[in-house]
Design a protein around this nucleic acid. Structure first.
Length: 816
RNA sequence: GCCGAGGUGGUGGAAUGGUAGACACACGGGACUCAAAAUCCCGCGAUAGCAAUAUCAUGAGGGUUCAAGUCCCUCCCUCGGCACCA
């Protein structure tokens, strides 16, 4: 047998060769005797900028795991698709006149080319595109499924409106009062919009046949997600246990309902505040003596954006409703009522009780409006001119005096319930998901409005409701679809009379809330996915993507999963068992990569110059996967040098020598490497896996000749990281089948044990000498050798040895 | 303010409570070469010393321990998320 040695590593040629093979015949797949493994990347929005090095980091990491799992005998599902609807393509179309579909397809083509150019082993036969009617037909089906179960509804509400994007936004898309796309200030508008009832899924529930389905909150406890993401979701849901208290109003039948988590402080209540949006302001109009001042205040507040309202953190404003008095149900005290915008209309009951002595906001407000500060109800260390927000023992609180805060909260809630004046309540910060958008490039909402029959869902057989192509999509604030006659004017499915189609489209997050299900059965024409195929692969074993979706996509996807589980379309109630976020890749200057700063690294250029395998290795070697890292062009070369060394090692391989071990030292190192690399891949510690391989390669380089087997094990271990060069070398070694079909190498415990160990001898905690002794030496032997060592004696001489601690083959610690 | 993650050489980063700085980049020296590139060898935390070696050193300060980058307490700083949520 003869080797065909190629002396120069030429990545371009090799990579193109194998990529062509994989494009033609698909990526080689193992049988999967050990079960299935579903490994998924957050599918990208195919932007015109092409692949970002951050994408490369994300996709390389999952590709390594996918390849590793295949070699370990799993049936791996590793698909890729396109989150193709969305504003950038539409905005580009408005600017250039190029249709969003055309642009989107071009971008997808480029993304796919780039992904293939770095050797990602996706199941391309499962590729999906959310803007394809064959896909969004099922997005519409999902809408109807929710609609039929009362989980999709239309209501008029105060909603977030972005002037730049000419559309409404979900709460989750408003960042610091600004639109997360355009950065424009978001204003509040009263509009009729479609919502999904995500708030129904916070607590645990039962499916139709009585099976337990975990809620959005408790489900977080059973999944392996980053703690920051879990706590961000918990915070967003914002469950808070408290008490509702009814304050009757003097001289009327009306009452103000208040929500508080600190009912124990109610004897310190000196006033009540309602939000500007509160309906009582209107109801009590005739009773309010200073109605002009109040209306003036409301007008000012209305003009403020949410941002301005929350930014005025220090200066609280408000106005008293003169002539209105609320009665504290506990002591009958009459207290003044204010309207103030530090109380939000959208949280709780839109009204709070003011307890200046025990709440900082109330304290600030009371001070400004010279309200009585009343003595503290909880004494403790509270000084007169400060408020105390901790728990304690109650004073001056009627029958509740002497109770702890905790007892009082429980007892007072019970009392309120008995008196029918309120009781225990749970409040959430989470609000229903607003999903309609007044834009063109999205999935149409499958609803028809008929003058006689009202709101009529499109029959399933009529799906998909296709997005018309010939629409003037310039935004006017009204959905562009209203300008398509053919689309807008339809017959009512029930009475066949003239009717109108809903012209809003769905938030693109609806499309991405269920795509991971479609991958199991992407071409199914009868269902969104076959139940058996779903059961085979889901839930997703490992999901990877950016941290920017901690509450948006990841919360919505969990909601969809739970809704489908509740109505028994699926049998699992969490979609993603294990989740990790790759750390952001910053530019060389430490800033975010951006076109305007001109600091963007284009993966194509790196592939061109040094090769895809080098790019993959570099991005994995940069540092821990989940850490933020800065790109360093100078360092990339180190990984190329490593591959050059691996390439040159082929010259040392003795192809006849099939023996599995050479010298004991080498085989020990080999097995140690297998162990470390295997464990590191399992823990996603790719940076140290690569450095372990480097140590092995550096050692192999020093050998005169190498047994073929040793080299092949190295190639196998390196193959998930650098698939092209390893496949090529594998074939140069004379193998015919793909390296991807090989079994992952196993380590032999016995071979890892080294003949000699270096034992550090410490005297009073400081290393004074290092002994090289046979592994497994007894404590007595080590002690004798150590005490006889002159370097040790220098520190122990003339001193009494008080204690000796021995850690086998590692450390001998002497205390004098 | 609250929640979460961090702070280690010139740089990126390694270290189940057990020899801090693996591996790599950069840098310095040498070999090969007419020369250069590539490659190979040596060195590379600070201070003192020709050296062996010693002392100091993982944001700061305390503590637990035979032994702390790692565990506990206090504080400082950086990054990410949420923020008048009653």
């Amino acid at each position: 047998m003869k080797k065909n040695i190629q002396s120069v590593y030429c990545p371009k040629k090799i990579e193109e060769k194998w990529q062509k093979e994989w494009r033609k015949n698909g990526h080689p797949k193992t049988k999967g005797k050990n079960g299935t493994y579903y490994i998924l990347d957050m599918f990208p929005y195919p932007s015109g900028d092409g692949l970002h090095v951050g994408h490369v980091e994300n996709f390389t990491a999952t590709d390594i795991v996918a390849r590793f799992k295949r070699m370990n005998g799993y049936d791996v599902l590793h698909p890729m698709g396109w989150d193709a609807f969305g504003l950038p393509a539409e905005n580009f179309a408005i600017k250039t006149g190029i249709h969003p579909q055309k642009k989107t397809l071009e971008c997808i083509k480029n993304f796919k080319r780039q992904m293939q150019s770095i050797g990602l082993s996706y199941d391309w036969e499962r590729e999906i595109n959310t803007s394809n009617p064959e896909y969004y037909r099922w997005t519409q089906w999902m809408f109807l499924f929710l609609y039929k179960n009362g989980l999709a509804y239309k209501k008029k509400a105060k909603v977030n409106w972005c002037e730049a994007c000419h559309t409404v936004l979900a709460n989750e898309q408003v960042i610091d009062g600004k639109c997360d796309r355009s950065g424009d200030i978001v204003v509040q508008k009263d509009l009729e919009q479609w919502f999904f009832k995500i708030t129904d899924f916070v607590e645990d529930m039962r499916s139709k046949s009585g099976k337990k389905v975990s809620g959005l909150l408790s489900g977080l406890q059973k999944i392996d997600w980053p703690s920051s993401t879990i706590s961000a979701q918990e915070h967003w849901i914002g469950r808070s246990e408290g008490t509702e208290v009814i304050f009757p109003l003097a001289h009327t039948e009306e009452a103000i309902k208040v929500f508080t988590t600190r009912v124990d402080t109610i004897f310190g209540c000196t006033y009540v505040v309602i939000a500007p949006e509160h309906p009582l302001v209107k109801t009590l109009e005739s009773q309010i003596e200073n109605i002009e001042a109040v209306q003036k205040y409301l007008a000012i507040t209305k003009r403020k954006t949410d941002l301005e309202r929350t930014e005025l953190n220090k200066e609280k404003t408000g106005v008293q409703l003169i002539g209105v008095e609320a009665i504290n149900p506990f002591n009958g005290n009459k207290v003044p009522v204010y309207v103030a915008d530090y109380v939000l209309g959208t949280y709780g009951t839109g009204a709070v009780m003011g307890v200046p002595a025990h709440d900082e906001r109330d304290f600030a407000f009371a001070k400004k409006y010279a309200l009585p500060l009343i003595e503290s109800i909880i004494p403790l260390q509270a000084k007169k001119e400060e408020c105390f927000t901790g728990d304690g023992e109650l004073i001056d609180s009627g029958v509740f005096t002497g109770m702890t805060s905790k007892e009082a909260r429980a007892q007072m809630s019970v009392w309120l319930k008995k008196e029918k004046m309120g009781g225990k309540r749970v409040q959430y910060r989470l609000r229903d998901w607003l999903i309609s958008r007044q834009r063109y490039w999205g999935a149409p909402i499958p609803i028809i409005y008929c003058d006689d029959c009202g709101e009529v869902p499109v029959p399933e057989k009529d799906l998909p409701v296709k997005l018309p192509k010939d629409v003037d999509f310039r935004p006017t604030g009204e959905s562009p679809l209203v300008r398509s006659r053919d689309f807008h004017k339809v017959k009512c499915p029930i009475c066949r009379k003239n009717a109108r189609r809903e012209v809003d489209t769905m938030d693109t997050f609806v499309c991405s809330s269920w795509y991971y299900l479609r991958f199991t059965d992407p071409n199914n024409k009868k269902k969104f996915a076959d139940a058996k195929k779903l059961a085979k692969y889901l839930p997703v074993d490992f999901y990877m993507g950016g941290a920017e979706h901690t509450v948006l996509h990841l919360l919505y996807a969990r909601f969809f999963t739970k809704a489908l589980a509740k109505y028994e379309y699926t049998k699992f109630d969490e979609p993603f068992l294990k989740l990790r976020h790759q750390g952001m890749v910053l530019a060389e200057d430490g800033r975010k990569m951006s076109k305007s700063l001109g600091n963007v690294i284009n993966p194509d250029a790196v592939v061109q110059e040094l090769g895809a395998d080098t790019l993959r290795l570099y991005e994995m070697f940069m540092g821990p996967l989940e850490d933020m890292k800065g790109w360093n062009t100078g360092s990339v070369i180190g990984l190329r040098r490593f591959l050059d060394k691996v390439w040159r090692l082929q010259e040392k391989v003795d192809i006849q020598n099939q023996q599995k071990t050479s010298q004991r030292v080498l085989s020990g190192l080999l097995h140690k490497t297998i162990k470390k690399v295997t464990e590191d891949i399992e823990e996603l510690k790719f940076n140290t896996a690569i450095s372990t391989l480097m140590i092995l390669v550096n050692a192999l380089e020093k050998e005169e000749t190498l047994p073929r087997n040793v080299y092949e094990v190295l190639l196998a271990m390196l193959s998930p990281f650098a698939p092209h060069i390893t496949e090529e070398l594998w074939h140069i070694m004379g193998n015919k089948k793909s390296l991807s079909l090989e079994k992952w190498p196993k380590w032999d415990k016995r071979k890892i044990i080294e003949e000699q160990s270096s034992i550090a001898v410490q005297v009073n905690g400081k290393v004074r000498s290092i002994l090289i002794l046979a592994t497994g030496s007894t404590e007595r032997e080590v002690k004798e050798k150590a005490l006889a060592d002159p370097k040790v004696q220098a520190y122990t001489e003339g001193k009494e040895i008080r204690k000796i601690i021995y850690i086998a083959d590692k450390i001998l610690s002497i205390v004098v």
